[in-house]
Design a protein around this nucleic acid. Structure first.
Length: 881
RNA sequence: GGGCGUGUAGCUCAGUUGGGAGAGCGCUAGAAUCGCACUCUAGAGGCCAGGGGUUCGAAUCCCCUCACGUCCA
C-alpha cells in the first residue's frame, strides 16, 4: 500500500465512523506564540480542548503536516542516524471533543489496524498507564488483546499533558513487533526494557480526562476527549515491509533523485546518512516555505535556515558543490502535491527561495574560510598546534562557520581544534540566552474568559449592515475576574449577545464607539474576538453602572469605521495591483489596517523601483476612479477557492467563509468591513517601501482625507521651495540642479583662490622666519578660519622653507586653531610638532597633539594667541639637539 | 528576546594608542592604434549607514537607532 493510499484510507475510515475530515492546518500555528511549529495533529484543536472554542462537529480526523525542529521537540541532530526520526512528517489522527471516549477509541484503532490494514493481531502490543485499569481492561474486552501483550508503563511514557496546567490524561500506545530478527542485544530485549528497532510505536491514543490546576491537582473533566496520533511514515514502512521510513515510497524517490544529482549510490547503512538527511530536510524546507516561512536569523525563520544549511552541508559531503536542494522541490511535489496542493501551487517560488538561501550559504562559507585562514596563519606564527576553543567558537558564532569544517581544514594543515573549549564557550552562550529569556504568555487575554464560556451564549456580529444596534450584556470581567457590574470610572471587558462593533481581525483594528442605557453610558475603547467567536468590548463606564443582563444601545464611531474601511478596501486593491505589476508570487505576508493608514507585507525578492511604485499607485487610483462596486457573499471554503479567491495561509477559516469581491478585479476571503464602492477611497497614496527580512517587502499607504492632507502638505512644501527659489513650482528641479552645479563650481573657485592667496601669504610669511639655535622657525598669526586651509598653508610654507619649523595660529568664533609642521631633518634632531603644540596650546586654554612632523591643536582663549605663538620659539629651543 | 560581527568610492575591501580619507577593479577623457584589446597619463566619483555625546580635533572612543550577517533561546 502506498503512503498516499494509506492516508486516504485512514481519513475515509474515520469519515465512515462519523468524523469530519478537517484539512491539515499550517505548519505555523495560528495565534499560538508558545509553539514554534505545528508538531502534532491536535495543535489546530488546542483551543477546543482548552474549552476556548467550539466546532460544529464532535468528531474529527486529520492528516496533519508536522515539523519537529527547534523548541522542546528537537529531532534535528538525530535525523538520518535512525530509521524513524524526521524534522518533517505526517501525523494521522482522530479526535473526539467530549463525544466518544476510551472504548470507541480503542475499538476504532483496533479495527483500522487489523481489518483495514490487515496487520496480524499477534504482532501488536499495547502499553497503558500504570494506574489506568480501565484501559487495561478495555483492550482485552473490546480488542481481545491477551493480557500478556499489555504492558503498564510509568508517567514518563504514558501520561500526556498539554502544559503544566490544563487538560491531560493517561495514554495508550500500540506497538508493532517487527519480529525477533530485529531484536537488540539487550537482555532482555522486551517492551519497556530496551529501546530498539524491534518494537515500533505506531499509534498513540491520548485519553484526555483530567484538568490539572496550578497546584498539580487533577480534577476529572465533565466531558473527556480523545486525541490520537499515528505517524504516516512509520506505518507505511510496516505496510511496505521495509526496515526504514527512508525506504518507503514517501521518501525513497528523494533519495533516488539525490543519487542522480550526486552520481553516487545510496547505502542503507552508515554511508547513506547524508542521503537520508537531505531527503528529510528537502521535505521540511519545501513545506515550511510553502507555509510562508522564509530563511532568516530568528525564530521559525532561523530553524528553517538551519535545516536548509544542514542539508546543503551534506550535499557537499556527497561531492555536490553547486546549489542542489532546490532541485528536489519538484520531487517533493511529485510525491505529496496531490495531498497538499499548497506545495504544488508554489513550486517555483519555493525553489527560488531555497536556491537563494543556498547561494547565501556559499557566501557565508567563503567569508568564514577567509577568517579561518587568518587564524591558522597566526597560530602558525605563534608556533601553536591547536586552534583554541574560543577561535573555533568565534568562527561558528559570528561567522556561521561549521565546527566540523573548521576541524577538517585545520586538520589538513596539521592543526587540532580544542573541542572542549568550544563546548565551554557554547555552554556560556546558551546560559546567557536562557538567563535573558522571559516566558511568553499565551492566551492571557482569552484565559480570563475560559471559565465563563459554558453558561453564556455567543455574540452575533451585526456590524456589516449597521453601525448601531442594541445588545444584552452577557458577562462582565474586571481584572481577570467575573463581576456583576462595572461602576462609573471603572474599566473592564463586556461580552454582548449582539454588537455592531467589529472585533480586531484580518489585520483590521477593532472598532471604537460607545454604549448607552437608561441612566448610564460607557466608552468602547477596543473590540476583540475570543477564540470561539464571542466578541469582547473593552469599556470604561462614564456614567451610571453597567450591570450584567442590561440591554444597551451600541454605537460604532462612524468616522473611524469609515476611515478604516477606506484603508481596508484599498488594501485589497493594492494586493491585486502588486500581483499585476510584480507577479503572482507577491503574496500577502501580513497586513495592518487602521483608520490612519495601511501597512502591507508581501513576498518579493528585490526592493521596488520608483517605476514599480508609481505603476502600483496608478493602478490602484484607476480602480478608485472606476467606481467599482464592492460586494460580499458567503459561501463554503471550497466554493470560494474554486472561484479563485485569494486565501491567506495561517488564517483559520470556518465552514462558511465571507468573500469580498471588487467587481471583476479582486476576490479575497475576508471578514473585514469594506466600502460599498471603490470611489469612496477618494485617493490612494503610497508613503513608504522597506525590507522586512529576506524575501519580504513592506509598503505603507494612506487614503481618503489622510491622502489629501499628504498631497496638500507636499504641494505646500513645493510652493515654499519654489518661492525661495523664485521660480514656478515645476521648474524647481532644474533650478536646484543649476544651484548645485554653481555650488560645485564656486567650491572649485574657492580652492583655486585659496591656493593663490596662500602663495602670497607664504611669500610674506617667509620674511618673518627667525633662527633658534640655527633652526629656521616661523611662528605667525594668520587670518584663516578653516582648519584645513590652515594646514594647507603650513604645508606650503614648510615646503618653501625646506628645513624648518612652522607654527601658525588663527582665531575664529572665540576659539583658536593651531597647526605645526616640522621638516624631516629636524624631526631627527628632536623637534616634535605634537609635543610642541601641546605646550603652546595650553597657554591659550586648549590642548592638542599629533605626529612628530605634523600636529593640530585648538584653544578657547583668543586673547592669549600671540603669547602662545611666541612661546613656540622657547619650546623649539628646548627640543632641538 | 540575548550575544558576537559588519556597514568607508559604482563593486571588493584597507585605514595601527584619535591628528592630512586610500588601494584594486570599474567609469570618463587624453596618448598610442586603421580600429579593438592591452599599456601609459589625467580625471570624476565619499554627509566614512543615521542620530547624539566625549574632545581643541572623531571614519577611529562611548551611547542610541537602522540595515545586513551569524550563533543561542
Amino acid at each position: 500500500m502506498t503512503g498516499n493510499e494509506l492516508r486516504e484510507r485512514f481519513l475515509s475510515f474515520f469519515a465512515g465512523k462519523g468524523h469530519t475530515i478537517v484539512p491539515s492546518s499550517s505548519l505555523v500555528p495560528a495565534n499560538d506564540p508558545t509553539l514554534l511549529f505545528t508538531n502534532a495533529g491536535m495543535v489546530q484543536f488546542k483551543d477546543v480542548f482548552l474549552g476556548l472554542d467550539r466546532r460544529p462537529f464532535k468528531r474529527a480526523t486529520t492528516a496533519q503536516k508536522c515539523v519537529r525542529a527547534g523548541g522542546k521537540h528537537n529531532d534535528l541532530d538525530t535525523v538520518g542516524r535512525t530509521a524513524r526520526h524526521h524534522t518533517f512528517f505526517e501525523m494521522l489522527g482522530n479526535f473526539s471533543f467530549g463525544d466518544y471516549f476510551k472504548g470507541e477509541a480503542i475499538a476504532y484503532a483496533w479495527e483500522f489496524l487489523t481489518r483495514v490494514l490487515e496487520l496480524p493481531p499477534e504482532r501488536l502490543w499495547i502499553t497503558v498507564y500504570q494506574d489506568d485499569d480501565e484501559a487495561y481492561r478495555l483492550w482485552q474486552e473490546v480488542a481481545g488483546v491477551p493480557a500478556e501483550r499489555i504492558v503498564r508503563m510509568g508517567e514518563k511514557d504514558n501520561f500526556w499533558a498539554m502544559g503544566d496546567t490544563g487538560p491531560c490524561g493517561p495514554c495508550s500506545e500500540i506497538i508493532y513487533d517487527r519480529g525477533p530478527e530485529h531484536a537488540c542485544r539487550s537482555n532482555p530485549c522486551a517492551l519497556g526494557a530496551c529501546d530498539c528497532d524491534r518494537w515500533l510505536e505506531i499509534w498513540n491514543l491520548v485519553f484526555m480526562q483530567y484538568e490539572r490546576d496550578a497546584g498539580g491537582n487533577l480534577t476529572p473533566l465533565p466531558r473527556p476527549s480523545i486525541d490520537t496520533g499515528m505517524g504516516l511514515e512509520r506505518v507505511a514502512s510496516v505496510l511496505q515491509g521495509v526496515d526504514s521510513n527512508f525506504d518507503t515510497d514517501l521518501l525513497q524517490p528523494l533519495i533516488k533523485a539525490m543519487e542522480g544529482l550526486s552520481g553516487r549510490a545510496y547505502d542503507r547503512g552508515e554511508a547513506g546518512f547524508p542521503f537520508r538527511v537531505i531527503a528529510d530536510h528537502a521535505r521540511a524546507c519545501t513545506f515550511l516555505i510553502a507555509d510562508g516561512v522564509l530563511p532568516g536569523n530568528e525564530g521559525r525563520s532561523y530553524v528553517l535556515r538551519r535545516i536548509l544549511r544542514r542539508a546543503a552541508r551534506f550535499g557537499k559531503a556527497l561531492g555536490v558543490e553547486e546549489p542542489f536542494l532546490y532541485r528536489l522541490v519538484a520531487t517533493v511535489v511529485n510525491i505529496m502535491g496531490q495531498a497538499y496542493p499548497e506545495v504544488a501551487e508554489q513550486q517555483d517560488y519555493i525553489a527560488r527561495v531555497m536556491r537563494q538561501e543556498e547561494e547565501r550559504f556559499h557566501e557565508t562559507l567563503n567569508d568564514g574560510m577567509r577568517v579561518l585562514s587568518g587564524i591558522l596563519e597566526r597560530a602558525g606564527r605563534e608556533g601553536r598546534q591547536t586552534i583554541t576553543g574560543q577561535e573555533a567558537f568565534t568562527l561558528y558564532d559570528t561567522y556561521g562557520f561549521p565546527l566540523d569544517l573548521t576541524e577538517e581544514i585545520a586538520g589538513e594543515q596539521g592543526f587540532k581544534v580544542d573541542r572542549a573549549g568550544f563546548e565551554d564557550a557554547m555552554a556560556a552562550q546558551r546560559e546567557r540566552a536562557r538567563a535573558a529569556r522571559e516566558d511568553v504568555k499565551a492566551y492571557e487575554f482569552a484565559l480570563a474568559f475560559a471559565g465563563n464560556l459554558d453558561d453564556i451564549g455567543g455574540t452575533e456580529f451585526t456590524g456589516y449592515g449597521r453601525l448601531e444596534d442594541t445588545g444584552k450584556v452577557l458577562v462582565l470581567v474586571r481584572e481577570g475576574e467575573r463581576v456583576p457590574s462595572l461602576a462609573g470610572g471603572e474599566t473592564g471587558y463586556a461580552v454582548l449577545d449582539r454588537t455592531p462593533c467589529y472585533p480586531e481581525g484580518g489585520g483590521q483594528v477593532g472598532d471604537q464607539g460607545s454604549l448607552a442605557w437608561p441612566g448610564g453610558a460607557a466608552r468602547v475603547q477596543d473590540t476583540r474576538r475570543l477564540p470561539d467567536g464571542k466578541i469582547v468590548h473593552q469599556v470604561t463606564v462614564t456614567a451610571g453602572n453597567l450591570t450584567a443582563g442590561q440591554e444597551v444601545k451600541v454605537m460604532v464611531d462612524r468616522e473611524r469605521r469609515l476611515a478604516t474601511a477606506r484603508n481596508h478596501t484599498a488594501t485589497h486593491l493594492l494586493h491585486r495591483a502588486l500581483k499585476n505589476v510584480l507577479g503572482e508570487h507577491a503574496n500577502q505576508a501580513g497586513s495592518l489596517v487602521t483608520p490612519e493608514r495601511l501597512r502591507f507585507d508581501f513576498t518579493h525578492f528585490a526592493p521596488l523601483t520608483e517605476e514599480e511604485l508609481r505603476a502600483i499607485e496608478k493602478e490602484v487610483n484607476q480602480k478608485v476612479l472606476a467606481n467599482l462596486p464592492v460586494t460580499t457573499l458567503e459561501t463554503s471554503l471550497q466554493e470560494a477557492r474554486a472561484m479563485g479567491a485569494t486565501a491567506l495561509f495561517g488564517e483559520k477559516y470556518g465552514e462558511r467563509v465571507r468573500v469580498v469581491k471588487i467587481d471583476a478585479y479582486s476576490l479575497e476571503l475576508c471578514g473585514g468591513t469594506h466600502l460599498r464602492s471603490t470611489s469612496e477611497v477618494g485617493l490612494f497614496r503610497l508613503t513608504g517601501e522597506s525590507s522586512i527580512g529576506a524575501g519580504v517587502r513592506r509598503v505603507e499607504a494612506v487614503t481618503g482625507t489622510a491622502a489629501l492632507d499628504l498631497v496638500s502638505q507636499e504641494s505646500q512644501e513645493l510652493a515654499t521651495v519654489a518661492g525661495l527659489l523664485k521660480v514656478p513650482p515645476f521648474q524647481v528641479a532644474g533650478r536646484v540642479q543649476q544651484l548645485l552645479d554653481k555650488g560645485k563650481e564656486m567650491e572649485r573657485e574657492i580652492t583655486r583662490l585659496r591656493n593663490q592667496l596662500a602663495g602670497y601669504t607664504v611669500r610674506e610669511l617667509l620674511g618673518h622666519v627667525r633662527e633658534v639655535d640655527g633652526v629656521p622657525v616661523l611662528q605667525a598669526r594668520v587670518d584663516i578660519a578653516d582648519a584645513e586651509a590652515l594646514r594647507e598653508l603650513a604645508d606650503k610654507v614648510r615646503d618653501k622653507l625646506g628645513s624648518g619649523v612652522v607654527v601658525l595660529g588663527s582665531q575664529h568664533d572665540g576659539r583658536v586653531n593651531f597647526v605645526a609642521m616640522v621638516s624631516k631633518d629636524l624631526v631627527k634632531r628632536g623637534v616634535h610638532a605634537g609635543n610642541l603644540l601641546r605646550e603652546v596650546a595650553r597657554i591659550a586654554a586648549g590642548g592638542g597633539g599629533g605626529r612628530a612632523d605634523m600636529a593640530q591643536a585648538g584653544g578657547k582663549d583668543p586673547s592669549k594667541l600671540d603669547q602662545a605663538l611666541a612661546y613656540s620659539l622657547k619650546v623649539v629651543a628646548q627640543q632641538v639637539r
